[in-house]
Computed example of a mutant assay.
Amino acid sequence: MEGGADSHGSSWYSQYHDAAGAVRDTAGMNDLGNAVRAWRTRLDPQAVGLTQNSPRRAPGLRREELAVLAGISIEYVIRIEQGRAATPSAQVCLALARALQLSDEEQAHLMRLAGHHSDAGRIPRLIPGSVHRIMDQLSGHPLSVYDATWQLLHWNRLFAATFGDPSAVPVEHRNMLLLQFEGPPTRARYTPAERSAFERSLVADLRATTSRYPDEKELQALIVRLERSARFRELWAQGLVATHQSGHKIVEHPEVGDVDLDSDTLTTQGSNLRVVVYTPRPGTDARSKLDLLAAIGVQELSPRPDQRRV
């Protein structure tokens, strides 16, 4: 699905303990469950495209319908509503907010109830409804949204069709910096100069993030991990500070061939989300190839050589 929540609730949450090792107080999780249940009850099924072929015993969405819309298991929806799901991830919260058609204020409230506060110690991962509306208007272009550490939060169908479906990648590996410095290889192809400039720009952007969120432990852990790469250590030692704004890459697509794209990064005010929009490079056939990819999605036009019958 778009946005990256998978179908297994168990992969999205973990037991949350305080410094003394005691299980976190469940009052907040009960508040979260009550809120989710109230929002589910108020939502008209027809508003999300569900037909009512038979009378419903209760108003609103059924739990199983919410689970499908959010891309999580029904068992996990039940645990959330019963206050038994410890610290749902930001990605799950965003998926629930979109499925429930929450307002910006309600979405922010949902994030706070789940323990995702915006402060110097936490990098914001809340995608406002206004940004979703902009993304809907740009659906003809591959588009992705990252937090300030370049962790992928959301993508559209055309992004998945062009670059490969991120939902096939574990959540912890959906980070542009990790992909660039750890691999595995992606579909993107650069000239040596373009690759050097791209890596330099990403590292400089990450350096700027460290001063905005000096207490973010996940950010510190990311840097420690990246420092395993000699190339990252070389660039990090230079102390460059900048924001990543634009670039160029050729996508080597297995079905339609090379797709020549420019990228522009829009940074949201306050939350420092990165909205990356890919546009066809002028003078190339990239537009027609993107139109074809929009039609076929992530499916393959023909079997791969190792999948063909002998």
Results as ranks from 00 to 15, higher is better:
113 L>C: 13
102 L>F: 01
124 P>Y: 04
111 M>S: 10
123 I>A: 08
114 A>Q: 05
113 L>W: 12
123 I>V: 15
118 S>F: 09
96 L>I: 09
90 A>Q: 02
109 H>T: 15
106 E>L: 10
116 H>K: 11
100 L>D: 09
106 E>P: 14
126 L>S: 02
107 Q>H: 07
114 A>T: 08
117 H>V: 12
117 H>Q: 14
90 A>H: 01
93 C>Q: 03
92 V>S: 01
104 D>G: 10
120 A>G: 14
91 Q>S: 09
100 L>S: 11
96 L>N: 07
96 L>P: 04
115 G>N: 10
127 I>A: 01
121 G>L: 04
122 R>V: 05
99 A>V: 06
126 L>A: 04
118 S>D: 15
120 A>S: 13
127 I>T: 01
108 A>R: 14
129 G>F: 00
100 L>V: 12
122 R>L: 02
103 S>T: 15
116 H>C: 06
109 H>L: 15
91 Q>I: 12
126 L>Q: 05
117 H>L: 14
129 G>C: 00
95 A>V: 05
112 R>D: 15
96 L>C: 04
125 R>Q: 14
124 P>G: 05
109 H>V: 10
125 R>H: 04
127 I>P: 00
128 P>H: 00
102 L>A: 10
127 I>V: 11
103 S>C: 10
99 A>F: 04
92 V>K: 00
129 G>E: 00
90 A>P: 02
103 S>Q: 06
116 H>F: 05
96 L>H: 03
101 Q>D: 10
98 R>I: 03
106 E>A: 14
108 A>Y: 02
117 H>D: 14
108 A>W: 04
112 R>F: 08
120 A>T: 12
113 L>R: 13
115 G>M: 07
102 L>Y: 03
97 A>N: 07
113 L>V: 12
112 R>S: 15
91 Q>V: 12
123 I>F: 07
110 L>R: 09
101 Q>A: 12
111 M>Y: 15
100 L>W: 02
116 H>L: 07
113 L>Q: 13
126 L>N: 02
99 A>W: 07
122 R>F: 09
101 Q>R: 15
128 P>Q: 02
99 A>C: 09
105 E>V: 10
126 L>C: 06
108 A>K: 13
95 A>S: 14
125 R>W: 00
106 E>W: 07
102 L>D: 05
103 S>G: 11
127 I>C: 01
126 L>R: 08
114 A>P: 09
101 Q>H: 13
109 H>G: 15
120 A>Y: 06
127 I>Q: 02
111 M>Q: 10
120 A>I: 08
91 Q>W: 00
115 G>V: 04
101 Q>Y: 03
116 H>A: 07
107 Q>M: 13
111 M>V: 06
106 E>I: 12
103 S>P: 13
110 L>N: 10
120 A>H: 09
97 A>G: 15
94 L>V: 02
98 R>C: 03
100 L>R: 09
99 A>H: 08
114 A>G: 07
128 P>I: 00
114 A>M: 04
107 Q>V: 07
103 S>I: 08
124 P>Q: 08
118 S>H: 14
94 L>A: 14
122 R>C: 10
127 I>G: 00
128 P>C: 00
116 H>I: 03
96 L>G: 07
114 A>N: 05
118 S>C: 12
117 H>T: 13
114 A>D: 06
114 A>R: 05
129 G>P: 00
105 E>T: 12
106 E>M: 11
115 G>C: 08
105 E>Y: 02
130 S>I: 01
